[in-house]
Design a binder for these strands. Sequence first.
RNA 1: GCGGCUGUAGCUCAGCGGAUUAGAGCAUCGGUCUACGGAACCGAGGGUCGGGGGUUCGAAUCCCUCCAGCCGCACCA
Length: 579
Amino acid sequence: MKCETGRVSSTYEQLALRLRQAFDALSPGADPVLRLSERGDYQANGVMALAKSLGRAPREVAADVVAHLDLEGWAEVEVAGPGFLNLTLTPARLAQQLRELGGDPRLGVEVTPAPATVVIDYSAPNVAKEMHVGHLRSTVIGDALARVFRFAGDEVIARNHVGDWGTPFGMLIEHLVDVGEDEAVASLSMGDLNTFYQAARTTFDADPAFRERSRERVVALQSGDPETRRLWRVLRDQSVAYFTEVYRKLDVTLTPEDVVGESSYNDALDTVVADLAAAGLLEESGGAWCVFPEGFTNRDGERLPLIIKKRDDGYGYAATDLAALRDRVDHLGADALFYVVGAPQAQHLEMVFAVARLAHWLPESVRCEHVVFGNVLGPDHKMLRTRSGESVRLVALIDEAVQRATDALAARAGSPEGPERATLALQIARAAVKYADLSTERSRDYVFDLDRMVSFEGDTGPYLQYAHARQRSILRRAGAQWSYDAAPFALEDPAERHLALGLLGFADATAAVRDSLQPHRLCTYLFDLAQRFTAFYEACPVLSAEGARRDERLALCDLSARTLALGLSLLGIEAPERM
RNA sequence: GCGGCUGUAGCUCAGCGGAUUAGAGCAUCGGUCUACGGAACCGAGGGUCGGGGGUUCGAAUCCCUCCAGCCGCACCA
C-alpha cells in the first residue's frame, strides 16, 4: 500500500491504522497500544484498557475487536492471555514490504507531505572563548536532530546563538588593541582562544586603568562607534572561523551562515520592551523592568521576575531571547522551535516561553520545546574537567579519541595505513564520541569513558561501523551477481525473519526521534538491528548459499548495510566501507 | 525553603502513553566453530527496578510520601 507521497508507509503504521479502525468500532478513539513483541511479530495491548472502560470481560472485548478487524493480506491475529492481540505478519506481506524497501533509497521513511519550518538552536559557543566539553552535547544532539528533520523533508533552520555581545567585549577589544591587531588575529586563528581570553581577564583584574578603558569601550561599542565596531567584528569573525574548523573536525553541519549571535537582536530590544509595555505586562521592580509570569517563585516564595531591562538600562539576556523567538516566529515562519540547551537553563527558558505566550508572540500552533540534556561527567562522576580543574577543550577531546582509534587500528593486522588510516581514525573517533553522547536518554548525565566509547565491542559507534563494514565486505565479494527481483524472501530461517522484521522498523525509529527529540531512540534501533544481523550472519551462510536463497540473503545484507549507513548518517556518523 | 532532573544486575545503560517470565552492553564463568572480516556466536550466574504507602485484576511504568545525588531560584550571559 502506498500513501499520498508515493512512499511506503511503515508496516507498523499500516497495522496500527487497521487496529484503530477496529477499536473505533467499539469505542471511538481507543488506543490499540501496538508494539513490537517477542510472542508474535507485534502485539496490541489496548484491549484490557478498553474492556475496563466498557465494563466488559477483556477476552470478550478482544473477540469483538477481532471480529471488526480487517487484516486481510497483512497479518494473522490471535487472542492470548487476558486479552492481548498477537499479530504475525503473513509471509507474503513480509516479502512484499521487503521488496518495497529494497527499491526505496529512503528505506521507508516518507517525505513529509506538509514540510514544517523547524528552527533548531544549538551549539552556541562564546566569541573569543574556547569551545569545551560544555558545548559538546548541544552541538552533537542539535546536529543529529537537524539531520533527522531535514531528511524527513522539513525545512531546518539552524541557529547558532553565539555569545557575541555584552560587557566582556570591552575588555576583549582593549586587549586586542594592546597586543596589536595582527598579533591578535594570528593568535585567534590558531585557535588559541583560551590564552587570549585569559590574558585579557588577567589584565582586567590587575589593572584599574585597563578596567576603565574597558568600560569606556563597552559604551563605544554599544553606541556604535565605527572603529570599535570594526575591532569587535575582527574578534567575532576570527572566532566564527575557528568554530567552523571545530565543526568540520566533528563533522557537524553548522556553517557561518547559521551563526546569528546575540548582537543580531540589538535593534529589536527596544521593540520588545515597548510591546511588552503596551501589552501591560511590564512592571518596574527594584529599578528593573520585569515581567512576572504566573507560577514562578523565588526562594522566599515571592513572584519571580523575568528581567527584561536592567536597573542600569542595559538589556538582560531574556530580552535577547525574546527578540530571537519573535524573529524566528515572525520572520522565519517557524512551525517548531527547539532549544538544545543545558538543563540549568530550564527555568529561564520556561519563563521566556511563558512570557512569549502572554505577549501572543508564540502561537499555540508552534511546537516549542527545550531539548534538555545532562552533564558530561568524568570518571569520578563529577563534571568532566582537566586535572588542573579547567574545562576540557573540545578539540583536545576529539584528538584524544583519534589517538585511541589510531592505536586500535595499528594493533590490528591488515588495517589501512598512512593517510587512509588517519581518515579512518577520525571517522571512528567521531563515531565513538557522538554515539556515546547520543545513545543515552538525553536528560541524564553520562560518564565520559573513552576506552568504552572507542571499543569495537558492545553498544558503541565503532561497533556499528564495524557491522556495516562486514556487510559491505560480503556485498563486495558478491559483486553484481544477484538481485532483489530474484529474492523470494521466503525467510525460512528464524534468524532471517527476525532480521527482516528489524529492517521494517527503520521508519518508525526515525519518526520516534522526531516525536520525542530523543536521538537515542535511533541508536537503540540501530544497535538492535546490528545484533539481529550478526545472529543472521552466524546462522545463514550468504555467499555459499545457492540459487534464490543466495539472492535473498544478499538482499538482507544489502538492506542491513543501507539501513545502518543511513541511520548512522542521521546521527552525524559516517559508515566507512572498510575498517 | 520552593522548583526541576536523576536513582533499574558488579560497572555503563535501555525499558517508564500499566500488561503475558524486568532487557542489553561490558566484566565474570562455561561452551561452540577450518571462521562469507573471530573485533564472532550460544549459554550461565547476577536485580526487594532508592525506601514506604496508594490506585489497579495487573505498577520499573500512574498518584502520595520519605531518602540520596546534581542543578536552578532578580539585573553575568
